[in-house]
Design a protein around this nucleic acid. Sequence first.
DNA 1: CCATCTTTGTGCACGCGTTCACAAAGGCAT
DNA 2: ATGCCTTTGTGAACGCGTGCACAAAGATGG
Lengths: 258, 258
Amino acid sequence: MATGRNHRPATTRSRGIPEATVARLPLYLRALTALSERSVPTVSSEELAAAAGVNSAKLRKDFSYLGSYGTRGVGYDVEYLVYQISRELGLTQDWPVVIVGIGNLGAALANYGGFASRGFRVAALIDADASLAGKPVAGIDVQHTDRLEQIIEESGVSIGVIATPAGSAQQVCDRLVAAGVTSILNFAPTVLSVPEGVDVRKVDLSIELQILAFHEQRKAGEDAPEEDTAPPAAPPAAAVTKRPEPGSDGDRPAVMPA
Amino acid sequence: MATGRNHRPATTRSRGIPEATVARLPLYLRALTALSERSVPTVSSEELAAAAGVNSAKLRKDFSYLGSYGTRGVGYDVEYLVYQISRELGLTQDWPVVIVGIGNLGAALANYGGFASRGFRVAALIDADASLAGKPVAGIDVQHTDRLEQIIEESGVSIGVIATPAGSAQQVCDRLVAAGVTSILNFAPTVLSVPEGVDVRKVDLSIELQILAFHEQRKAGEDAPEEDTAPPAAPPAAAVTKRPEPGSDGDRPAVMPA
DNA sequence: CCATCTTTGTGCACGCGTTCACAAAGGCAT
DNA sequence: ATGCCTTTGTGAACGCGTGCACAAAGATGG
Ligand SMILES: NC(=O)c1ccc[n+]([C@@H]2O[C@H](COP(=O)([O-])OP(=O)(O)OC[C@H]3O[C@@H](n4cnc5c(N)ncnc54)[C@H](O)[C@@H]3O)[C@@H](O)[C@H]2O)c1
Ligand SMILES: NC(=O)c1ccc[n+]([C@@H]2O[C@H](COP(=O)([O-])OP(=O)(O)OC[C@H]3O[C@@H](n4cnc5c(N)ncnc54)[C@H](O)[C@@H]3O)[C@@H](O)[C@H]2O)c1
């Protein structure tokens, strides 16, 4: 999963809908939308669960938090459920979104059609590079960072996407929050600190790959005997003496062997 | 979070390292790398936890799974810890990666510098569009899908990134797996089904936004009284009778009101 | 060598999330 | 109507993850 707030103190526990359930609702919604397009009238928890790639009991429990929308012996009415989930997720209204940082990634996001298909609308593209200002990306003119606050207030934007380099992310975040944004999707590889009441979710490609690498390594080393912690390097203790750097810094033990 | 395997039956539970811990190791690694660049010799759990945005007790417990690498009264040796985590994550070796689907997103990924900074190397870019073949993206020539199997075998690729449209994703996935890929990072909004032993993680922008929208809606509606489930639509029951299934398609109750 | 002070490593308790398993509900055929 | 069959909704058990709080380890200064 990405990162919601650290730990919701259970006080603000969304009318009883668990966070894990919320994270799966979009998955169900996607599967249901596909069924709806094929004009399938009803679907059982078993079928829908298979389509969404989850356990059917989990799905039923998830839906039970929304209410009793199923019919025993039959299943769930597809259209009705699509509406209920959409409403629960707040997708019956349009959410204007700003994207800050129109580089490789930001431009790809701007071009992504998957926004509008749900209730999201790209309200503005913002970049600090003056030479980009006025140029259209995905049919929308890029605007300069100077106008960030103005744009957000005028358009009533409450969701911001950060696709700037990591070094600028916190600064951009601060400005977004100050201007009224209360939900942020962060693609920059940094930990953002935000005041209470602001939600941050992060998408970090590098982390995902590293997690895959971890499991990949385990798969590979499953046959070969593990070499444990012995071979790697010198233990950390008793190794803090040298100081090669005049500026500031201590020594570094001779780790990172061959 | 994204999605690891559904549920690891605890049998293959990575030498005791909890999945949640594995997911945080890259975070610690990033913070430690920054410290290392500033030549900071040691760091306490409290400081490092703050930098990584987590609880210090959690961080200490996480590290305890790797071994006792700290020194009481002092903290952790930065360089040593960087090495230990890198080794645990399998980052001491280079992982060749293929990206399939060099469109908006795939091209952005190919251009992303964050790959090489960790142990990942873009081994090949693959697309079904014949007009892209031979054209360089990020300094690497795009190759046609026909050569997918050959490329994977030749380069010994075990990690694949899917950035094709959703409709092609499962098919691409199947080919990757058949060719020997055992870890997949999926950007297409689809549930991929893979055989046992293959890990899939997904990154879904749309889902992240929907989760943010959910919380955003709650924040907004906190003042206003909730309108519960009453107004929405007609209840689902008593609407399932017909089954006009010669071709397909049944009726659809008049949901989705104004 | 001893006292003190810092910080780790972890035992423990708690809450969330997952899964099983089944009673109740409801459709459908007879 | 009545009984059967399907599928929901949920009680309960379990396991994982989190965070508190503290004893033990070790550094440091006298
Ligand atoms: N490209 C990818 O596939 C990818 C993948 C994962 C993460 N990321 C992260 O996403 C971010 C963007 O990546 P990218 O490849 O698009 O980089 P990029 O350099 O192509 O684009 C960054 C853009 O942000 C703009 N910018 C810089 N500072 C700004 C500021 N203060 N305010 C507004 N705009 C500002 C720059 O002008 C530039 O247009 C980076 O943090 C990167 O680490 C990228
Ligand atoms: N662009 C985004 O920001 C974004 C965000 C989230 C998710 N996604 C998802 O990522 C995927 C790619 O998005 P995009 O915007 O880059 O789309 P795109 O249309 O720009 O690129 C898709 C590329 O995949 C290639 N392709 C199609 N079928 C293929 C096949 N069978 N084998 C190999 N290559 C094939 C196409 O030739 C094209 O170059 C889509 O599934 C999209 O939903 C994109």
